[in-house]
């Protein structure tokens, strides 16, 4: 068991990040190498400055809001929580004073953001069982949602699971120690594999690793392509 824990917590993490970054760079390079279409593909009426409107379209999804307000609500909440949790993970590694302008405890949300995320993910998943989204969806779409759901559920409920065992035993300080050794390329899993809720951490990291490795080869790349695409529409 220890070996499996170690494999997931160390080499697999490195592999995942390598695949993640290399994959993204590969995808972007493949795109940039393609010839550019010389004609405009924008939609009218045009509004200036195009880049600001493209950013608005990317982050506030006005088309979705107009068409499907319920989906829009979940999409906004989901992506906002995702962003906050991303910040939360950064704070787990470093002290980031700029985010402490609004003082909060590390780790951000203590599982609540994760619950919101999980509910949104279930909403996205169940939408795909109803026509016409059902007819449009391919296995990848379900797979990615399920993978993300598993990552989120184990990650967000780690703090809750801690309460079942010795609460003081393994918390943000231990996570930080582990993550910093990884970053320094002197991996040391320290105490994160001995506590009762370690299995939650390991599962979180395991699914997170899979998620990172799937990312560049799936429709998750929409997160990176959304801005250039929206720019195309705005001209």
């Amino acid at each position: 068991m220890d070996t499996i824990y170690t494999l997931i917590l160390v080499p697999m993490v490195y592999l995942a990040f390598f695949v993640f970054f290399a994959g993204i760079i590969w995808r972007i390079t493949a795109l940039i190498r393609k010839p550019k279409l010389p004609t405009t593909l924008k939609i009218y009426p045009e509004k200036k400055p195009a880049i600001l409107w493209a950013l608005t379209d990317t982050f506030f999804l006005p088309g979705v809001r107009r068409n499907n307000p319920v989906l829009w609500f979940f999409l906004m909440v989901f992506h906002l929580c995702l962003l906050l949790l991303f910040i939360g993970h950064l704070e787990l590694v470093w002290d980031l004073p700029m985010f402490q302008m609004i003082p909060h405890e590390i780790f951000l949300g203590n599982g609540f953001l994760g619950i919101i995320l999980s509910v949104s993910l279930l909403f996205f998943l169940f939408r795909r069982f109803i026509s016409p989204t059902k007819d449009l969806s391919v296995p990848e779409d379900y797979f990615v949602l399920i993978l993300l759901f598993l990552t989120v559920i184990f990650g967000s409920e780690m703090d809750w699971a801690r309460r079942w065992y010795a609460y003081e035993e393994m918390g943000p300080a231990e996570y930080r120690a582990y993550l910093q050794t990884l970053l320094a390329f002197k991996p040391d899993i320290g105490d994160v594999n001995i506590s009762g809720h370690s299995f939650m951490l390991v599962l979180h990291v395991f699914f997170g690793n899979l998620f990172l490795m799937v990312f560049p080869f799936s429709n998750l790349m929409h997160s990176i392509f959304a801005i250039p695409l929206n720019k195309l529409r705005r001209g």
Binding site: K34, L37, L71, T133, F225, L229, L232
Partner: peptide
């Protein structure tokens, strides 16, 4: 083209 490949690369089938 770059644009068309972007269109083909992206769609979350929402």
């Amino acid at each position: 083209s770059r644009q068309v490949q972007l269109y083909l690369d992206t769609c979350s089938r929402c």
